[in-house]
Every structure is written in structure tokens, then in C-alpha cells.
Amino acid sequence: MKSKFEFRYQKIAYLYLIIPVVFYSVFIIFPVGFSIFISLRRWNMLVPISVTKFVGFKNYLRVFKDPVFLMAFKNTAIYTSCILLIGIPLSIIIAVLLSKLKRNAFWRYILFIPSIVPLISIGMVWAFLYDPTWGPINTIIRIFGLPVSKWLWDTKTAMFSVTLVGIWATLGINTLISYMGVKEIPISLYEAAEIDGGNEVKKFFYITLPLLKPIISFLMITNLINSFQIFDLVVGLTGQKLAEPGGPANSTQVLVLYMYQTAFKYLKMGKASAMAFILFLLLFSTSIVFLKSLKKSERENY
């Protein structure tokens, strides 16, 4: 149905888009190309690129053989799946509970707080909270007479501790966004279900969840993208007492942190770029798979 008339304003449309187009060429297309280019070379940023050695896919091979990278990948994957599979369901449940209260502005303000504080400082505060000897978390646990943990200072519990803070930090904003979706669901649907004798659990699974699908998919995608790039939180949590963030013994090493160290501490730009490109492929493919499966299930539903 596109008539010629509709294309009359083509020029002005291009004019409106000129800054973004230039921006994306300079700050997206060029860097991505450049990254791929240097990922095939060995470059320490100190010498001109023209004199660097072409090494083919050696950097990629090296990355896949690097135990620290594999560790970082595992940790990132654990973190991301915990956020997606524990954090988001939890926030949806809280959103539903929140919607049962008429006056909930106060709660919404409180839930909002963690999402407006820089993640680095959240990490730093929690590093203090987690301290095994004088940290308030262990103090509270002791009051209840439960066994205390070493949290960040034990390779077995360190990544778990990071994930816990990650869920804490994202819970509020995810809840608030889910709450927006819950609020949009017409009450009449619930009333109809009540007449049919449906209980709360049934209502949640048969009305709330299906209607929340767009919001859930949105949360999944955004949280996936953010969690895969987790950096600030780990630096905040482990960069204080343990001078080298990602410790102890790489037990909280994550992808972006390792890339940062590889690039700016060890000056291996080629290897770092190779890792960045692998991360990009990972993110891109998981997001596409996600979107596809969501679209498919949507089609099945209607």
C-alpha cells in the first residue's frame, strides 16, 4: 500500500537520521570491523598496526585453550542463568503481590533504590557486608545460630555471593517493570476466572503469565545482555581486599573483566578483541534463539 506520496518526505527523513547514521558508522561499524581485524593480529597498541604480525585464528584458538577464559565463561554463564531463572521469576511474583496492594507507592520507591546506585559502589558496599569476621551478614547469621560462610573469601562460595548481589541489584527494577505489565491486565479477566472458581495459583498461571509474555521476553533479553557483560559488580566486590579483581584464584573471573585485564594490563589487544568477538557471537546467537522461541510460542498461543 505504499504510494509514491508517502515517500515524498524521504529527504527530510534522511536529514533527521543523518546524525545517528554517521554515529553508527563511526562508533559501531568501524569499531566492529577494526576489532575483527586486530583479532587476527598480535598487537600491543604501542606499535603502528602496519608492522603487526598477522596470526590468523591463532588468537581464537588461544582463547579457547585458555583455562582462565573458560573459567570466566563458566562463571558468566552461571551468573546470567541465575539472573534469568531465579531473579526474573522472583520479580514477577513480587510484582503480582505488589499489585494486590492498593497503596504501594512506598514499596515502589524502595524497590527502585538499588537500580539508581552505580553497580561498582553496590559491589563495594556488599564486599563490606560480606566480610567473614566483622561483616553484618555473618553477624546476623550468628544471631540465628546458623553456620557462617566465608562468602567472597572462599573459591567455592565466591561466585555464588556475586550472583546473590546481582539478583539483589536487579530485583527491584525487574519487579517494577513487571508490575507495569501486571497493572495493565484488565481486572475483568480475573473476575471472570473467579466466577469459574479459579484460585490464585490458577489465575497466576492461566491469566497473568500468558499476558505478561511481552514483558517477560523484554526482561529476559535486557537482563541477558546486561548480565553477560557483568563487570562493575565483580570489580566492586572483589577489587578491594583482594587487589586483583576476579579472585580468589579466578573464582569470580568474568568475561568482560578478563578482556579488560588482557587488553589494558597485558596489552594483548588481539587476544582481547578475539574474546570480545566471541562474546558478541554468543550474545547475538542467544538473543536470536530467544526471540525466535518467543515468537514461536506466541504464535502457538493465539
Binding site: P20, Y24, V26, F27, I28, F30, P31, V32, F34, S35, I38, M45, I225, F228, Q229, V256, M259, Y260, A263, M269, A272, S273, A276, F277, L279, F280, L283, F284, S287
Partner: peptide, 21 residues
């Protein structure tokens, strides 16, 4: 779609090239 898909690009991909640039 191109604009939207840039959301999926990890920020680190740009760091080294942009620093150089």
C-alpha cells in the same frame, strides 16, 4: 533493525578501537 540490533553488541567490542580512534 540495524539500530535495534546494536543493543546486542557487547560494549567491550568498541573499547579498543575507539580508544585507538
Amino acid at each position: 533493525s540495524f539500530f535495534l540490533s546494536t543493543i546486542m553488541l557487547p560494549a567491550f567490542l568498541f573499547v579498543v578501537p575507539e580508544y585507538f580512534m
